[in-house]
Design a protein around this nucleic acid. Structure first.
Lengths: 366, 366
DNA sequence: CTGTTAGCGCTTTCAG
DNA sequence: CTGAAAGCGCTAACAG
């Protein structure tokens, strides 16, 4: 039914091989032949059969991008950046890669399922974004699957998630030579959270609540660790009292922030500041505080994390930690295409800058 | 290198055909054989070669989703909803489809490019989301490409974009029988904008500014038409004066709102209300007004469109028009998979409900 | 520079 | 219910 290479070849009066060569453009072909072929292609409106060429060439132009929540701009920005790198450096015709954005919903099972699907498609590369679930069993399964994919020629890049633990001995590659098959673009979540907490401490806050993300995620843990380390350093001892002022939300969403803030207020009515797992959670926190008749920042300071576009426009503008999402995604995209040499140690860490805006201020002194 | 069907067949002591039948599960196979095959599959960690099976079966399990801006939750929500419909109705094993989310950046060329890429992959279905660019040449090219895709067996669904004009005579299908090949889930942008404007009018506003989206998009035009029709009806005549109070932003983004509001204020300092192209633009409008020392809604009322999650949490909570994005995406997904019969006329229109919140109030009476 | 010749790995009649 | 065999449409040696 559809027009095939052979049809084009017949029309142009050449062999199928020649047409293939013209189309892929990686082989010398006489100018006259080339134009003749191209004309036949146009006249017939020929479109390559992807599956057939992938099968024959044992390669595909699909690149997988795994995200926890596609409706969250955090992931949208990263995915968009990765995708923007996928079209040839100079907009070259042939080098078009197709991004397959997979929405795992943060579920480990879905993550594995999608990896299987991508393996089935013989994806050229896969970028896994966002924090990982910390579960020994899942980590092992994930790691194994990733190793197999890498062994099959699929490039693997982690973006915004911590590097994989060292490969088990004898598992790192067919030849066992030291090259890590999995590259990482990591966020400095610890450092960012530490600086944010230090900022609050410097303003004079002492009763600081923290609405953390889901307990089992690496991002949650790292940000919390940064927060705790700042408190610890400031007090010069283990932070026992900090514990009760941390609540874990069910997700990185608005309602977790709302509920979390209420819970925090119940535990410690004299709270003067609340740190949120991210900007979206912070918005929920703000809503809850306002509903309780508290002003921001006069009564309670609030800070987020990520610096998503809407944060600067919130009222009051949100103090937060800026993560260079676009830059990180672009970097991951380049690494995925092998367009950029691997960073030292296979891990690139991008900075996390404190953005002080209007939602944080000195605590009331009454 | 990779393990193939033949390997599995050998291990299970059956023919390749049998393994294929077990795996696709669409053909009677003896229970004992089936378990034997499954065991071999597990032991060998066999993963089907997608390209090969697509080639042989002349079909693929890829579903394309075209979005204008993947970083915008408007599209993220729709894409996520479509995707959630892609895994079998009951989570069935075999029916896994892979969503290919393509970020066109609103560019007609990119749109066409991605359609070619998807055609190359022989995508099972394609969902085009968001408003279309109104340009005769592009519309024709798009329509032609879509018809060809549909003719090739790819299901096409439009979500949040108006239905395609009627197919040119003799172009609608090989047989020419009346069935429309392209299904549509449309938003009631006109009605929503009209109701929103009526709300403002009812509050007593007369100097209403409008920060529209990019001029050439259908969504922009429809919302503007709804707005104008409400004004017209109210004044009982053609709205000549309304014209100067409309500015077009360069995009559906925050800065368009900011700049647009400033421009509006310059043209009409006595403005008492501003309608924005969407919620994101509205946030920019709010920021600009605040920067000018104006209070919302005391000095100026502001309203958005879409009702994205952050809108309810804005300060003040944004009056807007709620579009059932998730529902629409899910509907589109079902239609794309042929899991739901086509709506009458091939077009389903989803409602657009007015959400009155705190950013609109009666104008000052001084 | 171009044509010929084998497959890539799977699905699918068609026989048994 | 199972096997044998014939491609699906393209690419990649290998000759010329």
């Amino acid at each position: 039914m559809a027009v095939t290479l052979a049809d084009v070849a017949a029309r142009a009066g050449v062999s199928a091989a020649t047409v293939s060569r013209v189309l892929s453009g990686n082989y010398p072909v006489a100018g006259a032949t080339r134009t003749r072929v191209m004309r036949a292609v146009e006249e017939l409106e020929y479109v390559v059969n992807g599956p057939a060429s992938s099968l024959a060439a044992a390669s595909s132009d699909l690149v997988g991008i795994l995200v926890n929540d596609i409706a969250d701009p955090f992931f949208g920005i990263i995915a968009g950046a990765v995708q923007s790198e996928l079209n040839g450096p100079d907009g070259a015709q042939g080098s078009h890669k197709l991004a397959v954005v997979c929405n795992t919903g943060g579920s480990p099972e879905q993550e594995l399922t999608y990896l299987t699907l991508l393996q089935r498609q013989r994806a050229a590369a896969i970028v896994l974004t966002g924090g990982a679930v910390e579960d020994a069993e899942h980590s092992a399964a994930l790691s194994a699957r990733l190793q197999r994919l890498a062994a099959g020629g699929t490039r693997i890049v982690l973006c915004g998630r911590p590097p994989l633990g060292p490969a088990l001995p004898g598992q790192r590659g067919p030849q066992g030579h030291g090259e890590l098959p999995v590259l990482t673009v990591a966020f400095d979540n610890r450092g960012g959270a530490r600086r944010l907490t230090e900022h609050l401490l410097a303003l004079g806050h002492r009763a600081i609540g923290y609405v953390a993300g889901p307990a089992e995620r690496t991002t949650t843990r790292h940000r919390l660790e940064g927060h705790r380390s700042a408190l610890l350093e400031h007090r010069g001892g283990p932070v026992r009292e900090a514990e009760p002022l941390t609540v874990h939300g069910g997700g990185y969403d608005r309602s977790s922030g709302y509920d979390g803030a209420l819970e925090l207020l119940r535990r410690e009515p004299r709270l003067t500041a609340v740190l949120a797992a991210n900007d979206t959670v912070a918005l929920g926190v703000c809503a809850a505080l306002r509903d309780q008749g508290l002003r921001i920042p006069e009564d309670v300071s609030v800070a987020g994390f990520d610096d998503l576009p809407f944060s600067a426009d919130a009222a009051p503008a949100l103090t937060t930690v800026r993560l260079p999402l676009h830059e990180a995604g672009a970097r991951a995209g380049k690494l995925a295409l092998g367009r950029q040499g691997p960073p030292p140690g296979g891990v690139a860490t991008v900075r996390a800058d404190l953005m002080v805006r209007d939602s944080t201020a000195r605590p009331r002194t009454d």
